[in-house]
């Protein structure tokens, strides 16, 4: 057996596929094979617990481990880094808990916050420079850790209560679907619930549209007076929340 064949077979053994590995190892190596087999799945479960800490708390040990094992069986790791493992765990949660949408949403929030934790650095735009901005031409660049998540439930309140070790509210649907934005300020990840109109404004700004054109677009959609008020509120919160990296 070549080294390449042996390694393919060994990985197949870890993934519970048919394998000649038990033949290739020494005669008394059965317990050793079990160590590697257990370590493979065990490490991935621990990795998911680490990345999805609030989801783990929400589901409890037994349900989380069962979900993790289902995910691991369907998704062997591919990335060079274990930190990437679990990128699609929220999709597994959506499949496993179709009647409990908060489960997949808590998972998506856990993942986005983890990604923001060690995402690219970018100092926040100096608010002292705002007065010098030519708003007729200005284009806003957000910090690179900014992520938008669609939500139907109070997943943010659940997440916060678990993190603060406070009484956790029951899951409930929002009056209307909204969004959560996730980003990092300095070294600390943050998230906030936002209305759909703000999500649209963020997406337009992120596409490179000038802030003036963005205001025009809002006016077309929600009327001039409402749009002026909304755009002002959005910009103020983006500055206040240190979401803006640059205004060009």
């Amino acid at each position: 057996m070549t080294l390449l064949d042996l390694q393919r077979d060994f990985l197949g053994f870890l993934l519970d596929e048919p394998s000649d590995i038990p033949v290739a190892v020494g005669g008394s190596s059965g317990p050793g094979l079990a160590v590697y087999h257990n370590a493979y799945g065990g490490q991935l479960v621990e990795c998911l617990k680490d990345s999805y800490e609030r989801l783990w708390a929400w589901l409890g040990d037994e349900a989380f481990e069962a979900a993790a094992r289902r995910h691991i069986a369907a998704h062997p790791p591919h990335s060079w880094t274990l930190a990437d493992y679990g990128v699609k765990f929220s999709e597994t949660m959506a499949d496993l808990y179709p009647d409990d949408p908060e489960v997949a949403e808590i998972a998506a929030l856990d993942w986005a916050l983890r990604r923001a934790f060690d995402g690219p650095d970018a100092p926040a735009f100096d608010r002292q420079q705002l007065a010098a901005v030519d708003w007729d031409e200005a284009v806003i660049a957000f910090v690179p850790t900014l992520t938008l998540l669609p939500v139907k439930t109070n997943c943010g309140a659940i997440w916060n209560a678990i993190a603060a070790e406070e009484e956790v509210p029951a899951a409930e649907l929002l009056p209307e679907p909204g969004w959560v934005r996730v980003w990092r300020v300095g070294l600390q990840p943050h998230f906030a619930s936002i209305e759909t109109a703000e999500m649209g404004a963020i997406q337009l700004a992120s596409s490179g549209m000038s802030f003036a054109r963005l205001c025009d677009r809002l006016s077309e959609e929600i009327g001039v007076e409402t749009a002026v008020d909304a755009a002002g509120r959005y910009l103020a919160s983006w500055v206040q929340d240190q979401m803006i990296a640059d205004v060009r």
Partner: peptide, 21 residues
């Protein structure tokens, strides 16, 4: 070794002590 092809076990798997290895 940990990986061959697209699958990465993220474990420190043993090598055979052969001339090929």
């Amino acid at each position: 070794w940990s990986r061959v092809g697209e699958v990465n076990s993220h474990d420190l798997l043993p090598l055979p002590f052969t001339e090929e290895a």
